[in-house]
Amino acid sequence: MITTPKATRPPHKGSVRGHPIEVRKSVLSILYKSKASHLGPSMSAVEMLLAIYNSVDLDAIRAKDVLRPRVIISKGHCAAATYSVMAHVGLMDFRTLETYHQDDSALAGHVSHAVEFVEHSTGALGHGLPVACGCAMGLRARGAPQTPVFALLGDGELQEGAVWEAIMFAKHHQLANLILLIDDNRISSITNTAEVINLLPLKDRFAGFGLRVYEVDGHDVEAIIEAIDDIKRIREVSVIICRTTKGYGVPFAEGEPIWHYRTLNEQDYRAAMAYLEQGQI
């Protein structure tokens, strides 16, 4: 197990595209405008998504190069965060982002490949990692075993059996180009993950399957990027467990399961925006 204590890392270099607070404002904006749910799981994944999209060759993605890196968002209900991050790193224009949940838009509440530069539609949990494994095998068969394939999963999603089918497969085939990230926000759907199916400590579950385990602060973009870089260098089948808070950055939603489902009223929205404006997270 590897941990990256914040104090040992160099200070922010300012090279990361997209700022977590600005991304969260976008998330709030589109969720409020559309009266959509999934605030909690979107806010927990912002930094992970920023780390992923700052670790890929965006030009290869824009060019739709067959050997481009792949990003598979398996917890498809963080669509608002995914699309917001894509906008902030330059993969989507902000006018398109504003169509989230609107009539005739491709931007549904779960990640969709109808949106340009999204690889795979998800929403039913447990589907993304097998697809990512297929992409990783395909890149190997195409002679590009170094090209990374990112898979972002929720910790509640680990209750799905297909996830473990894929983990066994990834380890057996030594898919070192697969970079698996877990949004460990400790809340499943309606209650705490540990009360549903207790997998804690998560690191032992993955280590038991032979994976190299990184545990990082999931709201520290650079810490996540460091772990990603380490995996690229070491080339072992690995997982990055990102310790996060569901609803992070919106105080009244933090750690509250209901904000998986609840929509923002005007008062909530203004309070959350005001908090973010102060840059307090």
Partner: peptide, 11 residues
């Protein structure tokens, strides 16, 4: 799922 990923690569 693996088949889908392979299709993504054109197989």
């Amino acid at each position: 799922g693996i088949c889908a990923g392979l299709c993504n690569l054109g197989f």
